[in-house]
Structures are given as C-alpha cells and as structure tokens.
Design a protein around this nucleic acid. Sequence first.
DNA 1: ATGAAAGCGCTAACAT
DNA 2: ATGTTAGCGCTTTCAT
Lengths: 342, 342
Amino acid sequence: MVSIKDIAKQAGMSPSTVSRVVNGKKNVNSAKRKEILTLIEKNGYVPNNAARSMVLKRSFTVGIILADTFNMFQRQLFSFIERRLGSFGYNTHFFFVKFEENSEEECLAKLKGEKLDGVIMIHEVQNPSFYESVKKLQLPLITSTFNRAGFPSIHVNEEDAAYEAVRHLVNLGHRKLKMISSKGLSCGGQRAEGFFRALEEAGIRRTPEEQTVFVHQYTAEFGMYGMKELLLRDRDFSAVFAATDELAIGAMRILKDEGLRIPEDVSVVGFDDIDISSYFMPRLTTISQPLLEIGERTAQILHKYISGEQEDVMDITLPHKLIIRESTCAPPRSIEDIRKST
Amino acid sequence: MVSIKDIAKQAGMSPSTVSRVVNGKKNVNSAKRKEILTLIEKNGYVPNNAARSMVLKRSFTVGIILADTFNMFQRQLFSFIERRLGSFGYNTHFFFVKFEENSEEECLAKLKGEKLDGVIMIHEVQNPSFYESVKKLQLPLITSTFNRAGFPSIHVNEEDAAYEAVRHLVNLGHRKLKMISSKGLSCGGQRAEGFFRALEEAGIRRTPEEQTVFVHQYTAEFGMYGMKELLLRDRDFSAVFAATDELAIGAMRILKDEGLRIPEDVSVVGFDDIDISSYFMPRLTTISQPLLEIGERTAQILHKYISGEQEDVMDITLPHKLIIRESTCAPPRSIEDIRKST
DNA sequence: ATGAAAGCGCTAACAT
DNA sequence: ATGTTAGCGCTTTCAT
C-alpha cells in the first residue's frame, strides 16, 4: 500500500509537504502542489484512516446504533442520515445490536474501540447503564425517532400522533377498539398512551387486559401473533390500532384469513407510513413521520454538537400527519344501531 | 480515554505484558494476568482499533458494499452475513453506493482508506474499472447473490430460477406473458434470459419490445411505472413475471387500480420471496433464494480467503425454490377457447 | 516470564 | 514555504 512517504520520496519532498497538500493547507508552493497532486492521482494514494485518526484523536466517523431487526421505517431513516452525514464529511459506521443478552455491551465495547466523533441512536437500548457509559465516553450522542431524558433528540410527539390516529377511528364511530403495541420500547408505551387518551376522551372505558396485546418486535410476523391473540379473546371489535405499519400488515393478513373484510368489518390504522403501506391492499391508513426532515436534522444537529457549536441538550419535536387511506371506515352497524334508526 | 499505558502503569508492569494479556498470549504469569484483567475491567479499557490495525496492518473489519437503495431481500441477506462475520471476530463496515455519478469511486476511496481485511459486494457495480481497482488492492473480495467472472461468488442460478417461474405460468396455460425487469444489473439480464427461454420452449414468439419493460430500480415504485407502461401498450396479457417481489408489488397495485383481479384476470409472479410477499393480498407466488445459507456461506468463504485457506476462485451455486401461492392461476378463458370447447 | 525499543502512517509544532 | 522531529496506542522482536 502506498503511503505518504512514498509520495514524498517520489516527489523529492518531505512528508509534511505532502500532508499539507492532502489536507488542503494554504502554504504550499503551487507548482509543488500540482506535482504532488499528480503523483497522488497516479499512485492512487489514499491516506490511511487509522493513522490519521490516531494523531487527530478523531475519526470523522459517526456511529449509528440500531437493532439488527430494524424495520423499513428505520431503514429509510438511516439512509437519510447517512447521506447527510456524508455531506458533512463523516463516514458512517453501523452497529447492529442483536436480541441476545450481552449484545448491547458488546456494541458499547466496539464503540469504544473506534475513535468515533459522535453517535446516533435509532435503536432504544434496554439497559440504562448503556446511557451512563456513553455519557462517560464524553461522546456527542443524539437519539432519533425516540427520546430519552438527558439526551438530545429528534422525534415526533408519539403520544399525540397515536391519539390522533385513534381519534380518527373514534370519529368514524368506532367504540370497540383494540391495540397491538410493543412493550419495552418507549415509543410503544407512548403510542399506547395516545390510544388510551383517545378512548378516555370518547368516554370509552379503559380495559387494557381486553383492549391491548403487547408483542416483542415491530414486525409483520408479530403483528400476526398479536391479532391471533386478540381474535382468540373475542371478535367483538370493529377497529384496531397497530403501533407500527408492519404490525398492521401482519394483523390484516390474519383478519383476511379469518374472513373479515378490511375496512368493512374491521378498520385498521398503523403508524410510520412505510413505503409498502401505500401499495398494500387495502392501502393502509397511518401516521406519517417527516422522515427526511428527521434524518436531516439528526445529522445536522449531531454535527453541531461535534463541532462544539451546540452545548445544551436540545430536543426537537417535528410534526406528524395522519394519512387517511383505505383501511378505515365507519364501523358496521350493529343490530342495536339498526333498531334505533328505524 | 484510558490506554494500554495507563493500565500498565497502574499494574506496575510494562505495556507489553498488558498487551499479551489482552491478546490472550500464553506466556504470562497467571497472578499478573488476573491483576491486569481486573484493572482492565475496572477502567473499562478497550484497545484502540486504529492503533492496533496500524501495527497489524489489518483491521479485522470487512466491508460490505451495497446500493443505498438496497431492497428487503438484501437487507435480510446482509444481516445474516454480518452476524456470521461477527462470529468469526470481524467487524462489519457498510459502504452504501448511491445512484450519483461518482459514488462508486468515492466508495472505492473509502475502502482504501480503511485497512479492510476483505470485501463483500452485494451491490453490482456498473463501472468495470471498479473491479480492476479492487483487484489491485489485493483484497479478498467475494460477490453475493450475483456473480462476476473472475471473482468468487455465492448465488442461485438466476436464469434457471426465472425460467422455472415463467414455466409455472406457461404450465398454467398462459400464452400471453409480460416481464418487468431491470437493465444494467446482471441478475436482471439473467432473469430476463430465463423468461425468454421458457417462452421459446413453449413455442411462444419472442418479441421483447412488446413483452418486456425495463426499469431502473428494484422498487415497488418502479414496479408501478413498469406496469403502467405495459398497460399503455395493450391489455392483451394474462400473466406478468416481475424480476423482484418489490417490482411485483408495485405492479399488482396498478393492476388492482385498473380494476383487474389477481390472479383471475392477471397472474403475477415475483422473485426473491421477501417477507412481505407472504402477507400481501394476494400472497405472491415467487422464487425463494436460500438467504440464510447464502449469507452463511458468503461469510464463511470470505473468511477462508482472508485466512489464506482458500486460494482459487470458487463459485457456488445454491438451489432456489418456486413458491406457489395465490397470485397465479390458469388464465381466463378467451372467447376462442370457449368456442372451441363447446 | 517480562521489559525496552522500534515502528506502523500520519499530523502538527517547531525550526529554518 | 518547507523540512525535522515527536508522538498518537499498539504489537512485536529482541534482550534479559
């Protein structure tokens, strides 16, 4: 591998001069600069990152932590983040935390091993000591699409958004609602809160044991499990709020298999507005998050922290939007309703 | 940040000894080893990767190159690869190549900047000089789910698989078939070949201008475009072969919007068997690739190359499988058919 | 079994 | 404007 010394030797100059050229410093004779540039081109020289990051004590690399089961929403998000980060000159290094016991700690160890400039968390880690450790690392850290007290973060108001989704159902006339959400992750909890708030506001009694089912992952597969469980309890509901679109997709599959029509028999609303949701049959009513903006801001603000332009913890809430499509409509009229209206 | 020197100082020993302990060398007094281990634990010491990779001239990191538009199939694949690589002790560093002009070159530069142990390509790069450059790097490189002459690779037989998918359609009685595929990427081409081979075998004339549409990306969105284009030409077809499931999903959306039923009016078959395909309505008939095995083998074989156990180029073809679900059936009977049968 | 010293490729402070 | 030097954190001879 060709090094800075090789280039210097070929040019008959010192490594410092080459270094100056590589790093675009001003004080270099322009003829020499040109010569060095040609040599670099000719030899295909690229500075060794490891060496550079050793002396600089930074790597121009930011780490992104996310679950290795990341969903399509997160997949889109991190693409946006990565792109923007690239425009600021950062490399991006992904750390996938697995479901296994010690994976979070391993991840932390890896983080430490690299001289990262900053960290973005898209995955919400379970172990609180993780956050403590990161704090000790003195590493700029920002959470995206969820928030954790004490850390900068970019996100929508999860509870309000869920509330709005469920209120849409209530406004349509639904009184018997169910929810599929997830335990453990804070956004699951916040979305559940929104669900209950909408119920309460509508004067519907809160009976979590009947109304909700909690699953372990935000995947279509778990959406299936959730819906099966719900159906096992009873069929006495006309609408379902799923905490993510993936969950909704799995739930709809089961509904369909059980011969229930969507939305005529059961309305379904999701959360996230992943790509596939507008292709699905029926197209899914859902909450859309401003993904691009979340991504951009996340990258931007981390950059500010890294370059020292931003000191205090900033927490940014971006607006969500309810997207009404085909998976929701007024509930089927019950026998009582029909009786009343005649 | 605590370094090996700090640990050495605290232990009252030399950095060499600490290094030996960290790297699990035998020749260390076991009392001292224990003491050092405690110190390491207490201080949360993690070796600096950059420093280590400088002296070792390797990084225990492998790079994975993929398009930043990677689809769900690839997403699953790289998770498997990453996992397996981890079990061999490698870190994984992702390089997303974007659609922009010079992105492939930038990617190459980044590759060079890291001291990677090896490279896995999931994305097929357009520029042939890319492969030349990588060859010059002397870096073990393996391609996964596509293949390129001269490089080791793990993949299914794309052409055979596509042939089988289309033959399924033909066996069902379809004579008027269309295809949505992609130009540029070799698997698009190979899948197209399989399509034509099945047609020819069935004695159906090959008229590419009518029968095929080529799009730029393997996404549902482009599947929509492709189907719109097809429909614009004529409605005289009873089956569509889409080169990926995403394409199929987009295509089905348009079909549905045009009032065509799947599969009663038009049969659709995809390729890849991504998760969502079995949730979709109708469930998609498709070709499944042995994703897990592809991932495992890719990681395993790269590991062999890196550790010098494998020298010559090995090319492994794994078996695919046709999964028949709900999106295909016999074609609607044409007027002539009905006439004949009476 | 252990320590001292050299060196990996680079940058920056300090000469000149 | 340019070269010399030291040193980033680590591993690995080479002594002892």
